[in-house]
Design a protein around this nucleic acid. Structure first.
Lengths: 100, 100
DNA sequence: TTTATATATCGAGAATTATCAATATGTTTG
DNA sequence: CAAACATATTGATAATTCTCGATATATAAA
């Protein structure tokens, strides 16, 4: 982890909704409805569910999630027409080590 | 640690200079000149030294440090006319536990 | 008590971020 | 292939943050 990456992560974590998303994704099965198609949360939660829970526009949340993936906080996986998002614990750990 | 505090900390850590300051303060004796008056770094580093190293205006750095103290990232101690700043490891730990 | 030094606060303009509606792209399904 | 659905991107305005010089306050030294 370097200064630039750490700062990008900080930017993602400088907004209440985005911090909240990181928290929600700790326990997807508790914070989101079960998936219709996929019967598990192995790859996280789809954009629509996160967007509805956040209560912001689709474009805003999509941009949030894209940036959170870019800086390594989230991992995005496509399954058909859905994008699933989960926490990237590896990067989170590296970030924590950086600021510790 | 709650969502609001965590977000305030995220805001402080969303700027390269401020993240850098947190890094510098890990090892004051390596990153800053020795104090003229105080012969130790027990309470950290004075505003002027941080300001000079950051290369930004006095008012900007003073505001940075004030906000970083407000959200609990730093501890400020007055010794005469100097304010000394050091990392608040307790809050940092709580923040890390929050996002982990 | 005046002067010098260190830090904090204020006010303002520049730069960045937030947020949305509209639209584009990608994917599945009829 | 056309329609429907999920997500991504674009373009624009509002809101926030950045950053500075100027000024205020606090403390020490002369």
């Amino acid at each position: 982890m370097n200064l630039k990456t750490a700062t990008e992560i900080g930017k993602c974590l400088s907004n209440e909704t985005r911090v909240q998303i990181m928290e929600w994704l700790k326990k997807p099965e508790i914070n989101f409805p079960p998936h219709e198609t996929l019967k598990h949360f192995n790859d996280g939660v789809c954009v629509t569910y996160i967007q509805e829970k956040a209560g912001l526009s689709q474009s805003t949340v999509s941009t949030y999630l894209t940036n959170m993936e870019k800086c390594g906080l989230l991992i995005s996986t496509r399954h058909g027409k859905w994008s699933y998002l989960k926490r990237n614990e590896k990067t989170i750990k590296e970030y924590i080590e950086f600021i510790s």
